[in-house]
Simulated assay, not measured.
Amino acid sequence: MKNYQIYLVLTGVMLIWGLNVSVLKILVEHFMPVTITALRIFTAGVCVLLILAISQKIRKPSSQELGYIIVGGLLNVVAHHLFLATGLARTTATNGGLILGLGPLITACFALIFLKRFPTRLQLIGFVLGGIGISFTVLAGNKEIGDINLGDFYVFLSILAQGMSFILIKKASTTLDPRLLTGYMLIIGSFILFLLSIVIEPDGLKTLGGAPAYVWGVFFASAILATALGHYIYNYAIGQTGPAEAAIFLNLSTFFALLGSAVFLGEQFYPSHFAGLILIVSGVVFGSGAMEDLIRKRRRRIKVS
């Protein structure tokens, strides 16, 4: 895929992930959060492996690749989702949103340390613009930031785990298709999450009965579209562009999440959200490398003419 195609696809994934926040709120109102998360991720993993089986892309991983899969599942699935769910339950939405907005910057730092990928000046400008845009978006309608607490620390740990997993996915992509890696990680991670749910939520399985049919429809839509296809595409993009370049798009999901909350849950949407959107989009254009691509194309055209 060409770069601009990857950028468009990633924007679509962020739209789905952002709207999925409203969907998850519906699910946790009917089910225990860790239990339903484990089931949702397992369903997604099965879908990814089915897609790969149809396209004949499934193969047995090597011992080194198996190590990537296990560690990736622990970081990207278990640690990220567990710490995020625990943290958001103990902190304010404002604090959580601002900390989540650090994801692209943390991923860029990890890429610098472990992959020796130095961001360009324009990319650094993009990270800063994206961070400011997230602040505008999350703080809209809030008078102040809540006190820092243990929940904030858990949310920060979830972002650290996710950032590290992006680096691992990039390293593994040299020999293992990131889409196959995604399927294996989702399956292994869901099993570990399920075992944890038995301890954390002993009655979790009992909540699975009695839910309305539309809730299960919402569940499968979330599992297949957001978790399966979303991670399938996003992790492939990491292998194509790099962890930092793909992570900058995560800022868009925050805005789309607020938009979805306003449309589907009736939450208030403020004019300052649009200011945040402009900054976030500017950050994505610079941070993803899209601006540099445009500059290079323009220079080539000038030389040809």
Rank of each mutant, 00 (worst) to 15 (best):
M1R: 15
Y7V: 15
T11G: 05
T11S: 14
M14W: 10
V21D: 03
L24C: 02
L24I: 11
F31M: 00
P33E: 11
V34S: 14
V34M: 10
I41Y: 00
G45E: 13
C47N: 10
C47V: 12
V48H: 00
I51V: 05
Q56R: 15
S63Y: 12
S63D: 09
G72A: 08
G72Q: 06
L74M: 07
V78L: 05
V78S: 06
L84H: 05
G87S: 03
A93S: 15
L102Y: 04
G103P: 08
F110G: 05
F110S: 02
L112P: 06
I113V: 06
F114S: 07
F118P: 11
F118E: 13
F118C: 13
L122E: 06
L122Q: 05
L124S: 11
V128Y: 11
G133Q: 03
K143F: 05
G146E: 01
G151P: 09
V155I: 03
S158F: 01
L160F: 07
Q162A: 10
T175Q: 10
G189L: 00
G189I: 00
V199R: 12
I200G: 12
E201Q: 15
G209V: 15
V218Y: 03
T227S: 08
A228P: 03
A228M: 09
L229F: 02
F249K: 15
L250G: 06
S253E: 14
A257R: 10
F269Y: 00
F269P: 00
F269L: 11
P271S: 05
V284R: 13
G289K: 15
R299S: 04
S305K: 03
